[in-house]
Design a protein around this nucleic acid. Structure first.
Length: 256
DNA sequence: TTTACGGCTGACA
DNA sequence: GTGTCAGCCGTAA
């Protein structure tokens, strides 16, 4: 304790001490901690704006959906209570993630509520090129009845493309809605190799699950296991109950 | 505290 | 097969 007061050394004035601290040059990273940075980046949906702080990417919006850049940035400042300025470089991992060649970059989801965070975490586990119903996300998030609320949470996904909310679809086989329009959802899914015509055909036929009579396992049609089932052994089911009644068990990977 | 609102779902006509 | 409607549930105002 070098600052211990003694008879000939008075107690340091806390105000003076803090003023002395202010006189010190700010650490190089201090600005980055209090000011977020925004960048433009290419994506399958065209140009996006991404805003990131020291904790990771906080917001992603397509330029087409964000509208006027100044309005977008002002809205960010108001909503998050943080200043934003152009960043010198994109956050690490952002560009490959947007290209689909890497996992998500570090994300800062501190502004997201508990329920929504669980929803986003479950959504992040859906592999590229595959789709899952809203009800599946609700169950995985630990709130099996909150299906409608899952839709609301995904509608507010701050980092679309990075957390793939486009892979969450309606239980009846329809694609459902998307932040920047259902067309964008279809574009993204087709870009990941999902056969949208087949998805539509299965929906029209009322086929929700596909099982193999050689393994006795039933999967979501887009599960990579389901895609390997040969025609002769493939069976469609309208529900998990029907599949179970026929002696099938749910796939451990896609967990229908 | 209450109310209204959604990227949904399942039942029923 | 298609359309409608009540129910569900977390959020924001």
């Amino acid at each position: 304790m070098t600052d211990a007061p003694t008879a000939d050394r008075p107690t340091p004035d806390p105000l003076l001490a803090s003023l002395r601290d202010l006189a010190e040059p700010a650490p190089a990273t201090l600005t980055d901690r209090v000011v977020d940075g925004w960048v433009r980046a290419p994506s399958p949906l065209g140009e996006v704006y991404a805003v990131a702080g020291a904790g990771g990417v906080r917001l992603v919006r397509t330029a087409a959906h964000a509208g006027d850049l100044e309005v977008f940035l002002e809205d960010y400042r108001t909503r998050h209570g943080r200043p934003v300025r152009p960043a010198t470089r994109p956050p690490r991992g952002l560009l490959p993630a947007l290209r689909g060649t890497g996992g998500p970059p570090e994300l800062d989801l501190t502004d997201v509520g508990d329920f929504a965070r669980k929803v986003l975490a479950a959504t992040a586990r859906i592999p590229a090129g595959q789709i899952r119903p809203y009800g599946w996300v609700a169950r995985e998030a630990g709130h099996p009845k909150a299906v409608r609320a899952v839709g609301t949470a995904l509608a507010r996904n701050p980092v679309p493309l990075l957390i793939p909310c486009h892979r969450v679809v309606r239980g009846d086989g329809g694609l459902g809605q998307y932040l920047s329009g259902a067309g964008d959802k279809a574009t993204l899914l087709a870009g990941e190799g999902l056969d949208l015509d087949r998805v539509a055909d299965l929906a029209a036929a009322g086929t929700r699950l596909i099982g193999s009579d050689t393994t006795g396992v039933v999967c979501f049609p887009s599960c990579h296991h389901a895609r390997r089932i040969t025609d002769a052994h493939r069976h469609g089911f309208a529900s998990l109950d029907r599949a179970r009644a026929a002696g099938y068990r749910p796939c451990r990977d896609c967990r229908p």
